[in-house]
Write a protein that binds this DNA or RNA. Structure first.
Lengths: 240, 240
DNA sequence: CGAGGTCTTGAAGACGATCAACAAACGTGG
DNA sequence: CCACGTTTGTTGATCGTCTTCAAGACCTCG
């Protein structure tokens, strides 16, 4: 079941043994399907299992007094939504389904057994949380130092690159299931400004953007605008 | 030597065995002292050891074209500067000493042995990288949704709380060894605005701030202004 | 005592927020 | 199939926060 996860891990590490595959598959207690806009975990909740996204899109978000919301990350098939919770226990963010999602549920107890028997797989799981954090650092960097237009361009570059690793894109086309309001929350800007900045990207001929469907028309131009360097996604195969 | 680290881990987990303490102490290959403004690790560098800060202040920073720099985190005694590098190998940020620092160096090879023999200690190390990421999420949340004044107030709340865990503060007084230029880079604002916002905090009677020395005069007021909730620092004792 | 870094303050201007209104798309039930 | 309400997208106008440029004060250290 967690094939997508393994495919992505294999981009980072040359060897995943059959025993490791089976252990992780066996750690899954059950699967669930949830509909769009459903909550996967709630902020402040103490959790006892983690969720691996098998298909669909999800996000993490946190809200501040005054209803100001920030979407802190986007997730696609093969991502752990809340692996942090395995060590953290109490969540500091909520996770929401952006589309209908298929999720694999893995109890913490089963992960604990993995940490006690399969150190290499443990390091790979650790790695996924660390890559997660590297993406967050990139967003933090953007939030302060990139313009609104650059942040949007960077998001598109990151999205396409990550989708490609899982084979979830269609060439230069992909789906981004966010309303412009959600896009604003993701990029840290108002709905109105998100709209303007989407318009700017279109008028520069960099993307075609109809509803949720996006086509990158000028990848080098977009990468240059965003100052996108995929190094932080850690796509090199190494022994970990 | 890594007493500060253990003290802080004990705030999160009730039990650390003598074997775990000794294993981590033994994993340290050597210690180094570096002077202020020295570089600890450089962006894009492939590392083979991690650095545990024993005393002094350090930060992580990343730079974007045009020389725009972002300080992504601040570190005090007991923090790992670059534990991410153990799984990541290639760094996506630079680390700099803000003051003279004493560092313990732990080769990746020794950490690997720990992951293969001491699963509970491994989970605690994993936990430190996850708390690290939780702090980053909080900064990301602030970067978009908090005003400049609130971000500064939040930074002070976080700094004092983290210093308290290590016993590194002096009541409501502590040292923050940042110039206002660096403070601006940390908070994602210009030097000039950082200065104004420090002035605002002073004139509201919330802090006394002379050079690097800070005294919190009105803690509840500062917490309220910042909307500071220390839950994300994960200070509850649990089995991990 | 001078020099370099740091802090402080003023003024002008840019970027993005907010307020407001309307258009387009979508889904639902009549 | 159309009417209707709701959600989403689009555009204009005004306003505020923060940036940039600039200059002067302070301070520390050789």
């Amino acid at each position: 079941m967690p094939d997508l996860l393994f495919r992505r891990l294999l981009r980072r590490d040359p060897v995943i043994t059959e025993a490791e595959r089976q252990a992780l598959a066996a750690a899954i207690s059950h699967q669930v399907t949830i509909e769009a806009d459903a909550e996967i975990v709630r902020e402040h909740q103490v959790t006892d299992s983690v969720h691996l996204l098998l298909s669909g899109w999800a996000c993490r978000s946190a809200t501040l007094g005054g209803g100001r919301r920030r979407i802190q990350s986007l997730h696609i098939g093969g991502d752990f939504i809340d692996l942090q919770g395995f060590t953290l226990k109490r969540m500091d963010y909520s996770a929401l389904a952006l589309t209908a999602c298929r999720l694999a549920v893995i109890p913490h107890a089963n992960l604990r057994v993995i940490t006690e028997t399969l150190p290499h797989l443990t390091r790979l799981l650790w790695l996924t949380t660390v890559i997660d954090a590297a993406i967050q650092r990139q967003w933090l960097l953007g939030a302060g130092q990139r313009s609104a237009l650059q942040r949007l361009a960077h998001l598109l570059c990151e999205a396409l690159t990550r989708l490609e690793v899982g084979g979830l894109n269609d060439g230069r086309c992909f789906r981004l299931p966010l309303t412009q309001g959600e896009l604003g929350d993701t990029l840290g800007m108002s709905l109105v400004h998100a709209n303007r900045v989407v318009g700017e990207l279109r008028s520069r001929g960099l993307v075609r953007w109809r509803g949720e469907q996006i086509e990158i028309l000028d990848w080098p131009g977009l990468v240059a605008l965003a100052e996108f360097d995929p190094a932080y996604l850690e796509l090199e195969q190494r022994d970990r």
